[in-house]
Amino acid sequence: MASRRLALADVATEPRTLPSRYLTPDDLVEMFELPSVETVYQWRRKRTGPRGFRVGRHLRFDPADVRAWVDSRREGAAA
């Protein structure tokens, strides 16, 4: 079975290389090396993280939205 480990590079810089599936909160924890999945849910409550959506009771993130969020964070960072 292939590893599900993700890296920020997997989110891609070009749309054609985006993963073929939506990302889970656990994927974001792994990608950004966050302390816990609760951080992702706090971002959602505070509206500070990438845009997510619900599929039933499950939270999912479009890789393109995650990339856009990362890019917006970079623009605000000091060079």
Results as ranks from 00 to 15, higher is better:
Met1Pro: 12
Met1Arg: 04
Met1Tyr: 07
Ala2Gln: 10
Ala2Gly: 12
Arg4Asp: 11
Leu6Pro: 04
Ala9Val: 15
Asp10Ser: 09
Asp10Ala: 10
Val11Ile: 15
Ala12Lys: 00
Ala12Gly: 15
Thr13Ile: 12
Thr17Gly: 13
Thr17Ile: 03
Pro19Met: 08
Pro19Arg: 00
Pro19Ser: 03
Arg21Tyr: 09
Arg21Ile: 08
Leu23Ser: 05
Thr24Val: 05
Asp26Tyr: 07
Asp26Arg: 12
Asp27Phe: 06
Leu28Glu: 10
Leu28Cys: 04
Leu28Ala: 07
Val29Asn: 05
Glu30Asp: 14
Met31Leu: 15
Met31Ala: 15
Phe32Leu: 12
Phe32Ile: 01
Leu34Thr: 05
Ser36Asn: 14
Val37Asp: 04
Glu38Cys: 01
Thr39Gln: 13
Val40Asp: 02
Tyr41Trp: 14
Gln42Phe: 06
Trp43Ala: 03
Trp43Phe: 08
Arg44Pro: 01
Arg45His: 10
Arg45Ser: 13
Lys46Tyr: 06
Arg47Met: 01
Thr48Ser: 14
Gly49Pro: 03
Gly49Cys: 05
Gly49Arg: 01
Gly49Lys: 04
Pro50Ala: 13
Pro50Asn: 09
Arg51Pro: 02
Gly52Glu: 04
Gly52Phe: 04
Arg54Asn: 05
Arg54Trp: 07
Val55Met: 11
Val55His: 13
Val55Trp: 08
Val55Lys: 07
Val55Gly: 00
Gly56Asp: 07
Arg57Leu: 01
Arg57Thr: 08
Leu59Tyr: 01
Leu59Arg: 05
Leu59Met: 12
Arg60Thr: 02
Ala64Val: 05
Asp65Asn: 06
Ala68Tyr: 01
Val70Lys: 05
Asp71Phe: 04
Arg73Ile: 06
Arg74Ile: 14
Arg74Pro: 03
Ala79Val: 04
Ala79Asn: 12
Ala79Trp: 09
